[in-house]
Design a protein around this nucleic acid. Sequence first.
RNA 1: GCCGAUUUAGCUCAGCCCGGUAGAGCAACCGCUUCGUAAGCGGUAGGUCAUCAGUUCGAUUCUGAUAAUCGGCACCA
Length: 653
Amino acid sequence: MVSVTFPDGAQRQFPEGVTGFEIAQGISPSLAKRTVAMALDGVVVDLADPIKTDARIEFLNREDPRALELIRHDCAHVLAEAVQTLWPGTQVTIGPVIENGFYYDFFRETPFTPEDFVAIEKKMREIIARDAPLTKEVWSREDAVSFFEKKGEAFKVELVQSIPGNEDLKIYKQGEWLDLCRGPHMTSVGKIGSAFKLMKVAGAYWRGNSDNPMLSRIYGTAFARQEQLDAYLKQIEEAERRDHRRLGREMDLFHFQEEAPGAIFWHPKGWTLFQTLVAYMRRRLSGDYQEVNAPQLMDKSMWEISGHWGWYRENMFMSKSAGDDTEDERTYAIKPMNCPGHVQIFKHGLRSYRDLPLRFAEFGIVHRYEPSGAMHGVMRVRAFTQDDAHIFCTEEQLAAECLKINELILSVYNDFGFGKILVKLSTRPEKRVGTDAMWDHAESVMMRVLDEIKAKHGDVIETALNPGEGAFYGPKFEYVLRDAIGRDWQCGTTQVDFNLPERFGAFYISPTSEKTPPVMVHRAICGSLERFTGILIEHFAGHMPLWIAPVQVVVATITQEADDYAYELIAAMRKRGLRVDADIRNEKINYKVREHSLAKVPVMVVVGKKEAQEKTVSIRRLGSQAQTSMTMEEAIAALIDEATPPDVKRANA
RNA sequence: GCCGAUUUAGCUCAGCCCGGUAGAGCAACCGCUUCGUAAGCGGUAGGUCAUCAGUUCGAUUCUGAUAAUCGGCACCA
């Protein structure tokens, strides 16, 4: 007998091996009918699974949040059946649930197109309407291999063979069709319902490896109810509206063109935005960091020493004199990173332990030959600016430096309105340099730091471990921020480096007069400033806080009679440092309001005959229909206060 | 880099299937209008149809190559 505990706390005895379905049926047939799966001690399993040990039981209906994954997974199976019915000979591979939906990878001569979706969805609805029960069988390895071989499912055969011998080989059947699957699944395909949609097609490598064949992937999503699907589709539209490439055009920030793939043409407004960000970051460095600048072109030997020429040459640009009969035949590399330059500055002159920690910062422009398919607006480009810094310190100073960097990163993110931050510690990878003792030491230091920042900032920080994901030269922290619509962006990073100072022969003189290689910490807060600008645009949906907005105020006139007053206002505002544009065109105020709203100008100051006479202004804020009237002086004071960057405000407080 | 799609006026898009050298809306420019918070009215101008080849009497249209972009995959020191 097994003892089963129900959610209300009641306990009942059942014969060992009783299924969830039998228990539900015993309680009431309607419960059994609406239950799609069960959870045993919190683990979701098939309702038809036998219960062999004492357990807490919960019956899941399709509205249960935990059932969503099942709906999507079942839907992936139905998608696969539909595709194989429509195009016999198509091979199935895997079809997992992912965030916001599912996909299924197929192998087929001609890839699918979105035009195929109509037919596939129709077939899927037919299959769901048939409502075949989903039943599980455990097969032997041999049976499974010979079955899939006979069907010509080479990928499934490979999957079967890769499942460890101690695991059951589970086959889920839905009527005639079956698939190898870990499960769990709902009781029947009819439970999927109708709130599903195929989203897009894409190529994807078998097992995620670019040496493997390319498969045709179909993405889809499914929800328990149609309203949820509709809400999700709306959210996608919202994300499209926020797309920085679209806003970049609408707000006239930047453009790209064919002659410079992966490089940004910043327009005046975009460059103002970018430089506002740089100015802010520069202020945040003062006192602790020394800003430096290292050459854009250096002889390739520099990169041979650093190791990059060997490891990353494919992703580097190089440059030579363009002259036909120049004597200079040297090959220069365009810097893909700033560290070697900073090591040279460190090495210039003899350093004492008394000089440490030494913190060199650079807004370093780097070029990397990114794969053509990786480029994405300003988010992934081939020429970008890092808010980079390298800290040279002693072993003893390492923990304190990591903590100091952490404080700065969190403070910066907070100033831009990012609330939730994830800090991941990536530890030693397979391929690495340095002794195990060094890694042990560094990892234990960083683990301690991680615990400390978690204890101190637990309200905004979540921490995680990323085993084996460290850089080859040392462990690292990665800072991931979450934007307004819940997307995660990895921006900041703190990396400990045992390797580079030694490669370049950098050292300092210790208290006992010994040459000692310093510990080097690489650190970036925004990462790529171009990308960070893009993230800010999407995070704020173009509606930038006043202190970052490239154009903070537009003064718009209603009639010509207010022109002189408008000029007076603009002069007064500019004098106090506000970024103001004038709109004295002969257009209706409706037209002007519409245009500047679309251009996402945060503040419109509207002046007509009345305001000119009374020396007042009518203020309209972006995203609001309301108008506030106040005197010119009140308005300027309020705007200046709001336009003061948060760090300057703190300093003034 | 790989799979698929796309590329026509500053922007958004039609025309291409069925070859006879282009069309709309918005923006721009010029007038008129001086107007109270998301598109006033009229007119004008603007395109070697991404590039290079091929087929053809003739190519924006058909074929091929190249480039860029988009959606994924892979990559991201």
